[in-house]
């Protein structure tokens, strides 16, 4: 394949790079494509058009906004760290070892990706709620209460965001050459040392991408958070919750908050552009 490409004249190769691409598209494809694109873009444009630009500085400097933003960033970051601490080892286990029911475990890990977040929140309540399966013991033995606390927000966000990290890191691990670990082993490294000093640096880009993805997902988390942690300003009210609440009585504030989240999303895309935007 490569040989035939190499041996062809340059002009032909140049054409190959654009193989299957034309400047004209048939109408039955072009029209729905443009409708689809417009559908994705219009709401964002509407957001920008209706934004209260004049009062924006004032909106964004209000104490409530800062509180919600601070809480959002704090919780999303904590959820990402928590996801890294347990998610990377989980990804390693799935990619590098074999145990009975591994496929089933893998499916379980990805379940929160497709599960409605509200259901996740209900499930978290049943597990860690004051009368939950584990929560009742946490409460009576250690006096720890998780629901409707900031920690509860972190847990809800971790539950929803961690699968993104695990899937991303597992994919990177599978693509990484396991023989580097073998080489480390022959040099006297235990499996853990090989993981720490060889595998981890090799898959760092995949971990970073997974972490950014998980962080973005955590930042936007709504359903599981409001179900498990409630909506208390300064304690559990994150940006998406604040947006939703503001929309009821102060639409201008809701738009301002939305603009902040939009800016964060664009920043995330920019951070990941080398990975996804260059798919062609």
């Amino acid at each position: 394949m490569t040989d035939t490409l190499e041996s062809r004249p340059r002009r032909d190769r140049h054409r190959d790079r654009h193989r299957g691409r034309t400047r004209t598209a048939p109408i039955p494809l072009l029209v729905p494509a443009l409708v689809g694109l417009a559908f994705l873009l219009l709401p964002l444009i509407a957001l920008l058009v209706r934004a209260p630009w004049r009062s924006l500085p004032e909106q964004l400097t209000s104490a409530e906004v800062w509180e919600a933003l601070r809480l959002s960033l704090l919780c999303a970051t904590a959820a990402t760290v928590l996801s890294l601490v347990v998610g990377v080892p989980l990804a390693w286990l799935l990619a590098r070892t074999w145990f009975p029911g591994r496929g089933f475990v893998r499916a379980l890990v990805t379940l929160p990706l497709v599960l409605p977040p509200v259901v996740g929140g209900v499930a978290l309540l049943l597990a860690f709620g004051r009368n939950g399966v584990i929560g009742q013991w946490l409460d009576s033995w250690f006096g720890i209460t998780l629901p409707f606390t900031t920690t509860g927000v972190v847990l809800a966000e971790t539950f929803v965001a961690m699968p993104f990290l695990v899937i991303s890191v597992e994919g990177t691990l599978r693509a990484a050459d396991p023989r580097y670990e073998e080489a480390a082993t022959t040099l006297g490294a235990s499996r853990f040392t090989a993981f720490r000093r060889v595998t981890l640096p090799l898959i760092a880009p995949g971990i970073a991408a997974g972490a950014v993805l998980a962080w973005a997902r955590a930042l936007g988390e709504f359903g599981a958070t409001i179900t498990f942690a409630g909506n208390f300003p300064g304690r559990t009210q994150t940006m998406p919750l604040a947006v939703y609440l503001a929309l009821q009585n102060d639409p201008a504030a809701a738009i301002a908050l939305s603009l902040v989240l939009l800016a964060v999303s664009i920043a995330v895309l920019a951070a990941l552009r080398d990975r996804w935007m260059t798919a062609s």
Binding site: A183, T186, L187, G188, A189, S190
Partner: peptide, 9 residues
């Protein structure tokens, strides 16, 4: 185990 063997590869 391989990491304990006095073997270089």
């Amino acid at each position: 185990p391989p990491e304990s063997r006095p073997v270089g590869v």
